[in-house]
Design a protein around this nucleic acid. Structure first.
Length: 572
DNA sequence: GCCGTTTTCGGCCCGACTGTTTTCAGTCG
């Protein structure tokens, strides 16, 4: 079994949890947490670095000790230090840290006082009224813990960006109606365009006497008020989504927006920069001693520490601060940069609208070309096209193109990659197409070596243009296929193929870190809607968000090219 | 445990809210 970056990150996270319960040096704990994040986010395969005997200390926050632990994990699948910790602290106890309101200190107290080592035991002692007897706890804490455990056991979920958008829009409208409210912005991971958000951070600027906090906790969708003060409040909506509200004066807008956009790791790194310059950054501004020198805009905050404004999507402490210092920030791709879309479906298969309706919708979305890429015959459930029906659609597209103005339809297919790596339609009909998107829709769980061979072989096909939703993951539903992505990206470069970034909110596949790896390798990415109806072109903005998180510029995006250039690039 | 254009040792980001307190630690973001 190959060791993934995520496996190594999980080991370091667990070590950090257990060390926390042991009250270890907080900075040592931070080093493990930081290492977990760096390895988990890395766009290089750490396992491959070990195999290639690369120096792991190239990774920020990885020194001699952690490098040795990574090698140990990759080579043996185990970590002796973690095993030792398991002998000192019951392993399941780390899970208790994920209960809101319980930190390392209180977990340790409950463990020592009541022998609580698991979530089930925690629920039992809370239900029996024994927690209130423990010094430092009271009846209220006990109630909160009981509720939190039950909520946790019934699975806490994250929300896709598309769903979160609906909550943001409705709540923002409600808050704007409160007296004295000036601006309302969603900050946090929503503004950074992470593919899912665990909670919403709403920032409001308002006059000092504004009743906006009361308006917030009184919002009709609120199920529970978790906390409420003059400048902060937290609620849980009926949907289970937690929303945190922060209220600041207008002159602090930029500092607060910056601060609450995060990420935490990014903020910590920038505050350290500020510290070196004798400055302090908080949510109210940038301060030299008691004097406030910036904060009304985000730009002013960055300027105070000698940096240009960094787009929110890059603020993950993945090298953006270094790039900003060197004047090498990417000019990130925008929705307006897209000239076309290379993946959509119509009524002929599992789409809902006609060819012409899809063409008009694409034009209305500001696009100049649209590839029609139905499913192929193997996908019977979607009424996939065989060679004959595809030939008929090709003719229909030719006829339609004669009368369409301002939008050009391209002939394409989303052809299945069969288990053996062959494509699901004969060469003769594929040769008539402008775009061949090839996708995996079956045998998702092949072992990595076999799955990788399958894709590499498909890419070797002379008509292969683009790998559709490359890892086939579905958020919250299906794990990504086991693929050696660095190898696939290299192969795409050698073969001149592209990779798709599918914009469906529950796909967003290619993910940001692989987008960055593709860019670094010189492989073009196509940001496609995979629209199944005229409304789905709106999803392109989510793909753009993921692309921006992956540092992509317009030049890295296949469908940001004008049609003539696109045709040249794909060889048709 | 990491890191160094002031350091190979001694630093390592900042403030609000809650509950159980008698002045603040713990937790969270």
């Amino acid at each position: 079994m190959p060791i993934h970056n995520a496996d190594i990150a999980a080991v370091f996270s667990e070590i950090a949890d257990l060390l926390e319960i042991e009250s270890a040096n907080p900075f040592r704990i931070r080093a493990y947490r930081n290492a977990a994040r760096v390895v988990g986010d890395a766009s290089v395969d750490v396992c491959g670095m070990v195999a290639g005997e690369k120096d792991l200390r190239m990774l920020p926050g990885i020194g001699a000790d952690l490098a040795a632990k990574i090698r140990e994990i990759v080579q043996t699948g185990k970590c002796a230090f973690l095993d030792r910790l398991h002998g000192e602290v019951p392993p399941a106890i780390a899970e208790l840290l994920h209960i809101p309101g319980l930190g390392p200190m209180r977990v340790r107290i409950l463990w020592h006082a009541l022998g609580v080592e698991t979530l089930e035991q925690l629920r039992r002692v809370a239900g029996e009224g024994r927690i209130r007897e423990v010094p430092g706890f009271g009846e209220k804490s006990e109630q909160k813990i009981l509720q939190a455990v039950e909520a946790h056991l019934s699975k806490t979920q994250r929300f896709t960006l598309a769903v979160a958008t609906q909550y943001v829009d409705a709540l923002a409208a409600h808050l704007k109606a409160a007296a004295g409210v000036d601006r309302v912005e969603a900050a946090g991971s929503f503004r950074r365009r992470r593919e899912t958000v665990g909670d919403l951070d709403m920032l409001v600027t308002a006059a000092a006497n504004s009743p906006v906090t009361a308006a917030f906790t009184g919002y009709e969708e609120v199920a529970e008020v978790l906390a409420s003060g003059p400048t902060r409040a937290s609620v849980r909506l009926k949907s289970g989504l937690q929303v945190d509200l922060r209220v600041v004066a207008p002159e602090s807008y930029g500092a607060a927006l910056y601060y609450f956009t995060g990420s935490k790791a990014h903020n910590v790194a920038v505050r350290r920069l500020a510290q070196e310059r004798g400055l302090k950054i908080n949510e109210y501004g940038v301060f030299r001693g008691d004097a406030r020198i910036a904060g009304e805009s985000e730009e002013s905050v960055f300027e105070a520490v000698g940096l240009p404004w960094i787009p929110p999507e890059l603020r993950e402490d993945r090298g953006e601060i270094d790039a900003a210092m060197k004047g090498r920030l990417p000019a990130l791709v925008d929705l307006e940069d897209l000239r076309g879309d290379l993946h959509c479906h119509t009524k002929a298969t599992d789409g809902r609208d006609t060819l012409e309706a899809m063409a008009q919708a694409a034009k209305a979305a500001g696009l100049e070309y649209l590839a029609i890429t139905e499913h192929s015959q193997r996908l019977a459930m979607a009424r996939g096209l065989d060679a004959e029906r595809l030939a008929a659609q090709i003719d229909e597209i030719d006829r339609l193109n004669d009368k369409l103005r301002g939008i050009r339809l391209l002939k394409g297919i989303e052809v299945d990659i069969l288990e053996d790596g062959k494509l699901d339609l004969p060469d003769a009909v594929l040769a008539r197409l402008d775009i061949v998107v090839a996708s995996i829709h079956s045998h998702f769980d092949l072992p990595q070596a076999k799955q990788t061979r399958r894709v590499l072989k498909a890419m070797d096909h002379k008509h292969f243009t683009l790998m559709g939703h490359p890892t086939a993951r579905l958020l919250d539903e299906r794990e990504p296929c086991e693929l050696d992505m660095p190898r696939i990206i290299r192969h795409a470069r050698e073969r001149g193929c592209g990779l798709e970034l599918n914009s469906q909110p529950d796909r967003l596949d290619l993910v940001d870190t692989w987008c960055k790896a593709a860019k670094e390798e010189g492989v073009l990415v196509s940001i496609d809607s995979d629209a199944h109806s005229v409304r789905d072109f709106a999803n392109l903005r989510f793909g753009i968000g993921q692309a921006r998180r992956g540092w992509l510029e317009a030049a890295d995006v296949l469908n940001a090219r004008p049609l003539a250039e696109l045709r040249r690039l794909v060889g048709h």
